[in-house]
Design a protein around this nucleic acid. Structure first.
Length: 473
RNA sequence: GUCCCCAUCGUCUAGUCAGGCCUAGGACACGACCCUUUCAAGGUUGAGACACGGGUUCGAAUCCCGUUGGGGACGCCA
């Protein structure tokens, strides 16, 4: 049997981190089955039935977020709103079959019922006023909603692929609204009709939908359809242990991109947040597709840990292709230092990237560190760097300058040998010379190897920077 | 409040379904040391958890019950 999954966000904002993980799991599950013979498809459906809150910007942000994350979907995204007629038809059918009824309660009456229910410690809010009442009693001029005639007794059971068997007494569930007074379908109806029509076999979504699954199960039953397999994955919590949501600390994926995280980092991190495969931590996407399964999804919520994400990102930066990193860095540098980039910034970055990427955990940090190559002279000095350039430091640089000027081969190894020789001749350790050089060359006390830097910068630029310092303020 | 779910180091987790291989393993973060031209990376190492209480059993992190704690859901939102 072909596995069909979907990601169904409502376009009321960016694609947040929890949604991204839900999308990832659905995508992975479909890909896994596609790669293991049985077939798998992953669809995207935009749940835009709430016209007041849905925006095209949000839809675009969702596309952009998924695309950046590298999660591709089958065909055109489905607009739930565009299918409203089908949803309505399903409700009408239930009405005709006597499985649903019109309810004329006003919002005030409903509010009173809600209050009474809570006061009495009941979960069921709607009291079924119109369930068996004669439609002839209907007040004039009131547009009714259509409610499902849900079972009053017994229990509804879902065999959740993650949570196991979950049971609730039907007495807890009231008659849900299927069609609003204005004739538009509710989420509950739309989801069921759409998932059925789209042939969804596995509904993988956040644990916050677990109670919805009960109602949806009742709806599937009433409509005479088989319910899909449900898999409710635990929520992601913030540092405070509460559900991460758009209103509560969840950032959009683009915020992580802007902060300098790589998409493969997010994929790996999000995968591991709530899913495990033995002691494996670094898991490529191909490996994830091969391994992913619902059996290994944990049952408890997980906290989002930016430190671990950052560490993982460092790993993926080190692994990333230099040319790709150069482009990512150049983009930021051009935006952050307009008009101040050196002519051969790109070439230098490419040459120095191997040393640079070893030391950065985010693209932002990498860009920051890249300025030692990318920016024109004269360079800015940090206070600590300035301290390296006291009388002693400058004296060493003054001595080293002609030695470098006369150096034969201008490369990493040769320059180190030359400098070491110079240092030892003066009774210094290499580090004693290297630090002032670093300060002069980079304006910082922290950088890649100074000899690598000289190599990347070339003789002319290196000597130029030394001269800038030697010339004094 | 009612219903539902969850519970292993600070965090993410392995182990739980098929009880002994667990004096509980890995990763991040933290401490120390090594490497070293700085910083990273890397290596070695330290500290650090089965929420509690009862059962069942020769034996329980693993099974059962309860307690506590945490979370989620209770809309003519999705």
């Amino acid at each position: 049997m072909t596995v069909v999954t979907r990601f169904a966000p409502s376009p009321t904002g960016y694609l947040h981190i929890g949604g991204a993980r839900t999308a990832l799991y659905n995508w992975l599950f479909a890909k896994h089955h596609a790669c293991h013979g049985t077939g798998g498809k992953f669809f995207l459906r935009i749940e835009d039935t709430d016209r007041a809150r849905s925006t095209q910007e949000a839809v675009d942000a969702i596309y952009a977020g998924l695309t950046w994350l590298g999660l591709d979907w089958e065909g055109e995204p489905v607009s739930q709103f565009a299918r409203a007629d089908l949803h309505r038809a399903a409700a009408e059918r239930l009405l005709a079959e006597g499985k649903a009824y019109r309810c004329y309660c006003s919002t005030e009456e409903l509010a009173a019922m809600r209050e009474a229910a809570r006061k009495e410690g009941r979960q069921r809010m709607y009291d079924g006023t119109w369930r068996d009442r004669d439609p002839a009693d209907a007040p004039k001029g009131v547009d009714p909603v259509i409610r499902l005639k849900a079972p009053l007794e017994g229990e509804t059971v879902i065999e959740d692929r993650v949570q196991g068997r979950v049971t609730v007494a039907n007495a807890q569930l009231d008659d849900m609204v299927l069609l609003r007074a204005d004739g538009t379908p509710t989420y509950m109806l739309a989801v069921v009709v759409d998932d059925h029509d789209m042939g969804i076999t596995h509904v993988i979504r956040g644990d916050d939908h677990l109670t919805n699954a009960f109602r949806q199960t009742q709806l599937y039953l009433a409509l005479g359809w088989d319910a899909p397999q449900f898999a409710h994955i635990p929520l992601i919590h913030g540092q405070d242990g509460a559900k991460l949501s758009k209103r509560h600390g969840a950032l959009g994926v683009e915020a992580y991109r802007d902060a300098g995280f790589l998409p493969e980092t997010l994929r790996n991190y999000l995968l591991r947040l709530g899913w495990g495969h033995g002691d494996d931590e670094i898991i490529s996407t191909d490996q994830a597709i091969d391994w992913f399964g619902l059996e290994n999804v944990g049952k408890s919520a997980a906290r989002f840990d930016i430190a671990k994400l950052t560490n993982l990102n460092g790993h993926y930066i080190r692994e990333a292709d230099d040319a790709r990193l150069v482009e990512l860095v150049m983009e930021r540098l051009e935006a952050g230092h307009p008009g101040r980039l050196a002519k051969d910034a790109r070439d230098r970055l490419f040459k120095g990237m191997a040393g640079l990427k070893e030391r950065a955990k985010t693209i932002s940090e990498l860009s920051e560190n890249s300025t030692i190559y990318a920016l024109q002279r004269p360079i800015e000095m940090t206070e600590k760097a300035q301290q390296q350039l006291g009388a002693d430091g400058l004296a060493l640089l003054r001595g080293l300058r002609p030695v470098l000027d006369a150096a034969g081969t201008w490369n990493d190894e040769a320059l180190m040998a030359t400098t070491r020789e110079f240092a030892e001749a003066g009774g210094h350790k290499l580090g004693a010379v290297a630090q002032p050089v670093r300060a002069a060359l980079t304006g910082s006390t922290v950088s890649p190897s100074v000899f690598e830097i000289m190599d990347v910068l070339g003789r002319e630029e290196t000597l130029g920077r030394l001269d800038d310092v030697l010339a004094g303020p």
